[in-house]
Design a protein around this nucleic acid. Structure first.
Lengths: 107, 107
DNA sequence: GACGATTATGTCTAATGTGACATATACTTT
DNA sequence: AAAGTATATGTCACATTAGACATAATCGTC
């Protein structure tokens, strides 16, 4: 794993594995994090495209503005579940969802 | 929503909305549940294809046999996060993951 | 049909994710 | 540059999901 990428993830608040296995982020773990970040990016894009504020979206999914902000920031405290449900609430189809996923860096 | 489908989901232990809005499962909610069930199905397929027991898979993802059973049963108590991480642990690529999602009934 | 292996179901406590709130920071418009 | 709007960040009490364990049900194989 690239030093560069590790820094990037850590900057976002991710704890990348334990201290001992600091340098060896497993493939699954990496793919999982990348997936979340990708969903996060797209969520923001979709919301903006719809010209909605974070408050608007928060209402739609019965959440809060701060949680939406964290979703879009790829905060480790948000689950894929919430991301997916938010995307679905924005009218994202499964077809589009699948495109988002397949476009993740780690093929 | 079809009576048939509602029964099917309820049989799996899902609480389909509140009592009042019993008949009107929102599109997002339905899509979300369908997605989980689809991931669950594929997880089982993949595990069996690899000729692994639930105990084996549990070890691989540092979980327990009962949780794997619940994953595959589409139990409401399991998150998409866990399903996805398990699929990734089985070597599922993003490309395949995306196929699973796009093949969900609700396009 | 007993035995061994696998899977299903229920229930605990601990860990993680949640909405809500407060508040800081960044953007826009005037 | 102040006011107004939008987003970011930190914290907390509460809810949900987690792994673990026990035990029941199911499935071959003998």
């Amino acid at each position: 794993m690239r030093e560069e990428k590790k820094k990037r993830l850590e900057a976002k608040g991710w704890k990348v594995g334990d201290a001992k296995e600091f340098l060896s982020l497993s493939d699954e773990e990496e793919a999982y994090i990348e997936l979340k970040l990708r969903l996060a990016e797209r969520l923001r894009e979709r919301r903006r495209h719809r010209r909605l504020t974070q408050v608007d979206l928060a209402r739609m999914v019965k959440s809060s503005q701060s949680r939406v902000a964290k979703m879009e920031a790829g905060d480790p405290s948000v689950s894929i579940d919430l991301l997916v449900r938010s995307l679905l609430a924005l009218g994202t189809t499964n077809r589009e969802l699948s495109k988002i996923i397949s476009s993740s860096r780690i093929a």
